[in-house]
Amino acid sequence: MEKEVIYNSSMHFEHQQWKGELAFWKDELKFFENRLSEIVTRWTNKDVLSQLEHYQNEFILHHETIENMLEDIEEHETRIAGQSKKNVDVLDIKFVKIHDVFRNRIENQRHIYSELKKTFFRSLEKYM
């Protein structure tokens, strides 16, 4: 059974993709927050405002998650750079495991974020 070889350049490429995706989410969250601000000014019903506050809190949590993930990517990029300086293009098993764990985290976050968007859009339909 042949082992898969994972190169630093492949990790770097995937990091760049993730960073782009996270940057998009950050921009999208700003749009959602602006939309939320518009809606809040239209309603005085406490139940509606409570629901809108829930989304505001979710957006804050997602901002924090995005920042944490970006920091983790940068940390891993630093490790890759250290490997590259030594002219080693294959990550060791420890780094590959870290990368796989992060890949699972971002896939999970995609699902969570997608669900938040769906429910937020449904709320927009109700409250706009």
Rank of each mutant, 00 (worst) to 15 (best):
residue 1 M to K: 13
residue 108 N to G: 13
residue 66 I to D: 00
residue 82 G to C: 05
residue 18 W to I: 05
residue 56 Q to P: 04
residue 116 L to Q: 07
residue 48 V to R: 04
residue 113 Y to R: 03
residue 105 R to P: 03
residue 49 L to V: 08
residue 15 H to A: 00
residue 93 I to Q: 12
residue 106 I to R: 01
residue 75 E to A: 11
residue 25 W to S: 05
residue 57 N to F: 09
residue 109 Q to K: 14
residue 87 N to D: 10
residue 1 M to G: 15
residue 42 R to E: 15
residue 111 H to Y: 15
residue 95 F to R: 01
residue 76 H to I: 03
residue 116 L to H: 04
residue 77 E to M: 04
residue 39 I to S: 00
residue 1 M to Y: 07
residue 24 F to K: 13
residue 90 V to W: 01
residue 128 M to I: 07
residue 99 H to P: 02
residue 48 V to Y: 02
residue 37 S to C: 06
residue 39 I to R: 00
residue 27 D to G: 10
residue 29 L to C: 04
residue 71 E to V: 13
residue 95 F to H: 07
residue 94 K to W: 02
residue 12 H to Y: 09
residue 14 E to I: 06
residue 108 N to H: 15
residue 10 S to M: 13
residue 110 R to I: 05
residue 37 S to G: 10
residue 2 E to C: 01
residue 38 E to S: 10
residue 29 L to D: 02
residue 67 E to C: 06
residue 7 Y to F: 14
residue 63 H to K: 15
residue 4 E to D: 08
residue 44 T to H: 14
residue 21 E to I: 02
residue 40 V to C: 05
residue 63 H to N: 08
residue 121 F to W: 09
residue 14 E to P: 01
residue 90 V to C: 02
residue 4 E to P: 03
residue 119 T to E: 11
residue 79 R to W: 03
residue 116 L to F: 07
residue 67 E to Q: 15
residue 97 K to M: 10
residue 112 I to L: 13
residue 128 M to R: 08
residue 80 I to L: 12
residue 44 T to D: 13
residue 67 E to N: 13
residue 42 R to D: 08
residue 73 I to Y: 02
residue 81 A to Y: 12
residue 67 E to M: 14
residue 27 D to K: 12
residue 96 V to S: 03
residue 37 S to F: 11
residue 116 L to C: 06
residue 5 V to S: 05
residue 71 E to H: 11
residue 63 H to L: 07
